[in-house]
């Protein structure tokens, strides 16, 4: 679905150019989710912005369904680390925003958004504002907003980092289910090794000065559930990632 070829990113600091990453090659397809993991500042979020089309690569190219990615595409949905909800919009208005921006009528928007809010069990919070929601509820609204656009690629930027352990696991299961049911391709940036292994079938381990692309598909997406966290294979993959992160 998405193919990354010779991608590079850098930034300027005191007049000199600092390379964040370079020579990056990988591809992501539906049913084979990719977890991106690495220390702070290694360019994980930058990579996600490039994949979403919000930023243009200075070198290399990103192909989405065989076409060069030039700006934002409706089929690519991004959920940001701090949810990106607008405080002055209610849950329903936030979840509907993408559709409203694209000129959908109120009726069409309602028809699309309400079932998603129901699926994410936040349909009882329609008129609440984000400051009246818990972290987990905010995250569900952000996911609902992304899903309302019927994407084929879902990009998540450390989506569960500020949630408690219970909510985190619950939402991880939810994301897996959503990706399975909708056949979504998933790229997921995280700091958590366990999360990377649970959600990903492939892992892109980004370290300063290089990257490793690993296969971590011990249990296929279809069979993956909470029990997988207790599986020996799960722990083996966690240790494998740990080893690569230390290098």
């Amino acid at each position: 679905m998405i193919e990354v070829q010779d991608l590079a990113a850098s930034y300027s600091e005191k007049g000199s150019k600092k390379i964040v990453f370079e020579n990056l090659f990988f591809e992501v397809s539906s049913g084979v989710p990719l977890s991106v993991i690495g220390p702070s500042g290694c360019g994980k979020t930058t990579l996600l912005y490039l994949l979403s089309g919000l930023k243009k690569p200075e070198k290399g190219e990103i192909l989405f369904r065989g076409e060069r990615l030039n700006g934002h595409r409706r089929e690519i949905a991004l959920v940001l680390q701090h949810y990106g909800l607008l405080p002055w919009k209610t849950v329903f208005q936030n979840a509907s925003l993408g559709l409203r921006i694209r000129g959908f009528s109120k009726k069409e928007t309602k028809k699309t958004v309400l079932p998603i809010l129901r699926e994410l069990t936040i349909d009882h919070l329609l008129d609440r504002f984000p400051n009246q929601l818990s972290g987990g509820e905010k995250q569900r609204v952000a996911i609902a907003r992304a899903l309302a656009l019927k994407p084929s690629l879902l990009l998540l930027d450390e989506p569960f980092s500020s949630l408690d352990a219970f909510t985190r696991e619950h939402l991880q299961n939810l994301i897996l289910n959503i990706c399975r049911q909708r056949e979504l391709a998933l790229v997921h940036v995280t700091h958590s090794i366990e999360e990377a292994v649970f959600l990903g079938e492939k892992a892109l381990v980004m370290n300063e000065g290089g990257y490793d692309l690993l296969s971590i598909n011990g249990v296929g997406m279809a069979e993956r559930d909470s029990e997988y966290r207790k599986n020996d294979l799960f722990h083996q993959y966690c240790n494998l990632l740990r080893g690569y992160l230390k290098r």
Partner: peptide, 26 residues
């Protein structure tokens, strides 16, 4: 203004006028 808010609206396909209406002014 928190840049993440602008990015979140941009990621939904917003144009400059919509970013102003949905994010900057509110």
């Amino acid at each position: 203004i928190d840049e993440e808010q602008i990015l979140s609206v941009l990621s939904l396909g917003a144009r400059p006028k919509q970013i102003f209406l949905h994010t900057i002014f509110p």
